[in-house]
Design a protein around this nucleic acid. Structure first.
Lengths: 222, 222
DNA sequence: CACGTACCGGATAGACCGCATCCATTTGTA
DNA sequence: TACAAATGGATGCGGTCTATCCGGTACGTG
């Protein structure tokens, strides 16, 4: 890296670009343009391209922070005494992040981008997820035939459900639409439990046929 | 419609276009070009545009057949004596269709296209799904708090998981990769059951961390 | 069988979009 | 002050998708 202290204004613009990038990638996903980011950051396109040679480079820079966040969630989950509670905490928090941030969801689902320096998925996150699953299995709370990779794929599915709901959508005065995916998380959790001690109460009410239709319809226009 | 009997060659080309469209939309999704379809059908672009004024029109024509197929699956499921078995049959078959056909999966998920004549989702399919769920609830096999719309959203999630696996992918000699999503279907099914009579045995083996990584990596290049 | 017309094919025009560069101008700092 | 560093955005390039146009072809009716 050419890290020989940036000029004051340059450093400030770099921060602005990172912030705008986080914001824009979160909302519109990874195919937002670097030009978009520049405009959104209030700087010229040229400035953006001087700071980050390509869009990928910007994404990589943003990614580091977000992987740290996910790793923190995992370590916190592992620190929870009860193995099942830890598992639930991880899934809830991780999915909350991905529901809010389309960009990171796309990356964790293996879509869109192919940035070389992100073997972190295997190297940093995956072992922790595996450990979380292993611990829950050993404690007899997670069914024996489920592994850490299953948790990954389940997250991919649940994230897809959460993307079904447009950004700040409400429907018939329902404010909990953004949490709809949690219904299905909890159904999945009941399916993941070893001891089938009944069913959990689902955190969000189901949608009516009309509401579902409106939602999916609305989605086509975005 | 100008249905005053097409000339023989025109009719033949229309069929070719429909077949090519089905094939291409299934494999590459709905953003395949009408020019692509024409080329794939072995006819000129002009021919394609004479037959179908726009891509949407072609999609609509194809859609009719596929909705019929889905409706047939639903009716078959409703005809199964055991309510739970019917539910399982529906989900298995419907997801199999969507796993094979990216185009219809995109439409059922409310993505991509906004074709006006397809309120069929609410009008033809949704009531049947609802009936299926209602029947299973009444029979005491489906948990009380789950509705037909929940089945829709679950399918969206599971379809997303199935799209994780590239077309004819194998990994370490595993031939069942295309069925990976069924693991998660069965986890979901266990979560949907009212009587928690233990856990089902999952139909496909879990992936290792390395296999998962390879899969998601590979996906980025498509 | 001959003629008109519906049809064919594909080159091509036109619109749009994303990426990246270049350079005249401004700003920071030694 | 002076000069290197940084700025901004107009601009060029290459790609994609949509859709049309028109010289040539083949169907099928009289």
């Amino acid at each position: 890296m050419t890290d020989r202290t940036l000029r004051k204004d340059a450093a400030r613009n770099r921060e602005r670009l990172l912030a705008a990038g986080r914001d824009l990638f979160a909302r519109r996903g990874l195919d937002a343009t670097l030009n978009d980011v520049a405009h959104h950051a209030g700087v010229g396109v040229g400035t953006a391209y001087r700071r980050f040679a390509s869009k990928e480079e910007l994404i990589d820079a943003i990614l580091v922070q977000q992987v740290d966040e996910l790793e923190a969630i995992l370590r916190e989950a592992l620190a929870v005494p009860d193995a099942w509670d830890g598992l639930v905490l991880y899934l809830e928090r991780s999915l909350e992040v991905q529901a809010r941030d389309l960009g990171i969801a796309q990356i964790l689902s293996g879509r869109r981008i192919r940035t070389d320096q992100h073997d972190w998925q295997r190297d940093r996150l995956a072992p922790l997820v595996d450990e979380l699953a292993e611990r829950a299995r050993s404690a007899g709370v997670l069914r024996e035939d489920v592994t850490g990779t299953d948790l990954i794929f389940l997250q991919i599915g649940l994230t897809a459900i959460s993307r079904t709901v447009p950004d700040g959508a409400t429907l018939d005065g329902r404010e909990d639409l953004a949490q709809l995916y949690r219904r299905y998380l909890w159904i999945a959790l009941d399916g993941l439990r070893a001891s089938t001690a009944g069913t959990s109460s689902l955190p969000v009410a189901a949608l009516s046929v009309e509401q579902t239709h409106t939602l999916l319809q609305h989605r086509a226009e975005g």
